[in-house]
Design a protein around this nucleic acid. Structure first.
Lengths: 218, 218
DNA sequence: GAGGAAATACAACATTTGTTCTATTTTATC
DNA sequence: GATAAAATAGAACAAATGTTGTATTTCCTC
């Protein structure tokens, strides 16, 4: 299995069209298209024309073929991975470290960028990402170095996982929130039994956002 | 697209073997096997025998076919999803393989789609995604319903987080692996203290891949 | 052990498909 | 505009593949 180094030559319009069609078909139908199906889909009236492009694509390392076998196509490299502006990918700035235990968050100095492609996340402008520090939330499976994505919002309901902090401070933590309107209190609960919940008067707590997503690299 | 209700008839040994082979081939090669390839792999010396089973599987709703088209096979329902509720088992319902095709295979619920892959994961063709079932790995912060992305590989070193299973079975689990070459044994360790490590002779364990990434939606 | 259903096999055939050769058209370059 | 390279097309052929009909074997049930 020799993985050809990606020829950094650009993809022709037609070749990109073909590559994309193969990918889409594989995903949508569960099996790759035949040469003639590619021809029809990509407006080429001869299988030979497709053959021509396939050979180039193969030489460039974009796909693998098992010759003489119908539909024996494997896409090595997504055409998307080459596009400079990755339409589908969201890049969200990692604003800083968020505390587990007591805090320490330096907002507003993007250190990193996370690339996400989740369709389900919706409007990207209201999202921000943080790298987790500490172990106060391991009960929820949130570990040190994980990256969590939150949606900016200043309110929350009991039980939600939020990014919050004290109004006067620059620190923020990720915690499960509990709102007691009767007593006018907010409780921020760690999910690690080794830590204790913290109680504050409602007006002292600032909610920055709600956790919607988490990712971890091993 | 009518999703046939899963006929609760059980899968024959042979039919399960065939279904599993189709799935595995789709994952590993990127395209489904031909009828004759199935015959060879599943020890059937006639394509007609395979045809017989395929028709049954199709009627049961396990797979779809486009007749007269080579390799036009789509697995609707993983054979794994039928396996008795082994807590450790991974259900591999939807593998909408990553950012594009490669070894795509979209099984089961089109609703559940993994559509996220960070650039840093590199070559997408050797990756596959799984949805986690069970709580045997919560010690590592891997929870039910999380999606883990693994890189295909058949070997591993002690301490790594792997997708592995018994060679003869269709189920796979995510576990931390420990290899004892002296005793010719492999230990698969859950990270939930409620579960016990399992020991197997080395040649009975099949390693499918190493966990490289995890994502969770809240 | 008899009978029937399920499973398997063999062989022949029709399709789909990949492949190659050659000719023609388009595009780019000077 | 001339020339070469790239791209496309057409046709014919070979290989891989799906399909069907029938016969044989295996397995299960009574």
């Amino acid at each position: 299995m020799t993985t050809e180094p990606p020829n950094n030559e650009i993809l022709t319009v037609k070749r990109r069209e073909i590559l994309t069609y193969i990918e889409r078909t594989q995903i949508e139908r569960g099996y790759p298209p035949s040469v003639r199906e590619i021809a029809t889909a990509c407006s080429l009236s001869s299988p030979a024309s497709v053959q021509f492009h396939l050979k180039v694509l193969q030489k460039q390392g974009f796909l693998m073929r098992d010759l003489s076998k119908p539909r024996a196509l494997t896409v090595n490299m997504s055409s998307r991975s080459l596009s400079s502006s990755n339409d589908d990918a969201l890049s969200i700035p990692v604003i800083g470290l968020i505390a587990a235990g007591s805090g320490a968050l330096a907002l507003e100095n993007p250190t990193d960028e996370v690339a996400l492609i989740p369709a389900f996340l919706g409007d990207a402008t209201t999202l921000f990402a943080l790298r987790v520090k500490g172990d106060s939330m391991i009960g929820d499976g949130i570990f040190e170095r994980d990256i969590i994505v939150a949606r900016k919002q200043s309110t929350a309901t009991t039980g939600e996982l939020v990014i919050a902090g004290l109004r006067d401070e620059t620190e923020a933590t990720v915690k499960r929130i509990e709102i007691d309107r009767a007593k006018n209190r907010i409780v921020l609960k760690p999910s690690n039994p080794a830590y204790s919940p913290m109680q504050y008067p409602m007006d002292q707590v600032a909610i920055y956002g709600r956790v919607v997503f988490l990712q971890r690299q091993f």
